[in-house]
Amino acid sequence: MRKWFFLFIIVVLGLLEVAVLDYFKIFGVKPDLFLIVVVILSLFFELKGVIFFVIFAGVLKDAFSINTFGINTLLLPLWSFLIMKLSKRISIDNNFILMAVIFIITASHNIITGLILVFSGGFFIPLGISLRIAFLESLYTAIIAPLVFKIFRTFPRWLPQGAWNWE
């Protein structure tokens, strides 16, 4: 049941990002909910338990975008893997550390995506616009991440006893 629940959450967030989030754009950028969900899943669960959902989130994002298919499908599991490694060495309970991690991951994700777009020859974005997107999106995503985390942390109260535990 919990697996269907996470699948449902990813689908709903994906639909929100595609259909609704445009109304919350600031300076032409909107936050990356897919990335926040991946970070949440990576912090709470083991890799083998969430890899399917992380890949599913990547495939969903790739399907709705016009970039090279597979960029998000491969990058999101990579960030998930790195987050898991990092969470074993430092504590990400503090909101500021969480925001910093999300900022760095989002910025890296955008830089890699931008470079792939340029070198794949498909699309070209001027440098000024690229830097604006990379920086502002990272900042916006990092700012709303604690809010999304807080909502997820209250989930155990909404679910039946034991449903939040993966095993």
Partner: peptide, 9 residues
């Protein structure tokens, strides 16, 4: 019915 989920397009 929807828009691109990323900010690159």
């Amino acid at each position: 019915i929807g828009r691109s989920p990323d900010n690159w397009s």
